[in-house]
Design a protein around this nucleic acid. Structure first.
Lengths: 146, 146
DNA sequence: TTTAACTCTATCGATTTAGTGGGAAATTGA
DNA sequence: TCAATTTCCCACTAAATCGATAGAGTTAAA
């Protein structure tokens, strides 16, 4: 299960991906759009910035913008930034591999191959799922039509 | 990430699947084989029994047996029994669907389709991955050869 | 009736999670 | 320069979860 943080993050990023305004969006507006508590979202956006998914500017008219185009930000990027590896166990992770303690070892563990297969399956989906795909091919046009 | 409970469970079940002895296995032996603390494993096996993955007999020479053949027990069964739904969010679960609060709704949520796709991917793998597959086609023979 | 096993409930400490609060730093506009 | 606005950073709390342990109770075979 995703954490609440990751869910807020995905909603917030979809909102940002759908905006056509080139000026940065303030936390307050993002919080309203993604139905997240303002202060809580603050920490989330900061984390996304640390992972180079967002860029920010301070002061008046400051706020957040996507660090790159929505096609180049995948759900996998976002979830990894907030919840860590996609894998079901550290020993099955590609981005944060760590052997499990008290295990016969990678080659002998009967559980390991299944976890690797599961990780590959979910990573295959989420790495290919970008923000632009999430808001749909019509996402931008719909907003523009308003 | 899987809980430690689920990991112990998978190891324990693989051990049971590889045994050729028709008599039930005692907790102590299962604990040793799966490198799990005895009392902790106790609760896990009980949970697996509640989910009809194991059957038990009490008293002297009592213990646990698989409730059905190893081909008919999937990793998905085990993980669902101990960690709950495979989905990344309740709204994407097939076995325990629940709409997320403060969400535009299934049809309008831009995040939902990705979570459903991820769930289908991981369920596809884990539902098709049985204990017998985990211990390998040679699993039984190897044990017999000893 | 003893003994070896499962069953059940309660509890504990550490960690994580969700969320809040206050203030410092930066930027803009007057 | 000053005031307003906005991000940034730190500390903190309450509740839940997780991994694990303890102990009393129940069952069944020898």
């Amino acid at each position: 299960m995703l954490s609440q943080r990751a869910r807020y993050a995905l909603r917030a990023l979809c909102f940002l991906a759908g905006r056509e305004d080139p000026r940065p969006a303030a936390i307050v507006d993002i919080a309203e759009a993604s139905a997240a508590p303002r202060k809580f979202l603050e920490a989330i956006l900061l984390e996304l910035k640390r992972h180079q998914i967002l860029v920010s500017s301070r002061g008046r008219f400051g706020g957040y913008l996507l660090a790159r185009s929505p096609e180049e930000i995948s759900f996998a990027d976002v979830i990894r930034a907030l919840d860590g590896p996609l894998a079901l166990a550290p020993c099955a992770s590609k981005t944060a591999f760590r052997p499990c303690e008290a295990c016969p070892g990678i080659t002998d563990c009967p559980v390991h191959p299944a976890l690797v297969a599961a990780r590959e399956a979910v990573a295959g989906v989420l790495e290919g799922w970008s923000l632009s795909r999430a808001i749909g091919p019509l996402g931008a046009e719909i907003l523009q039509a308003k």
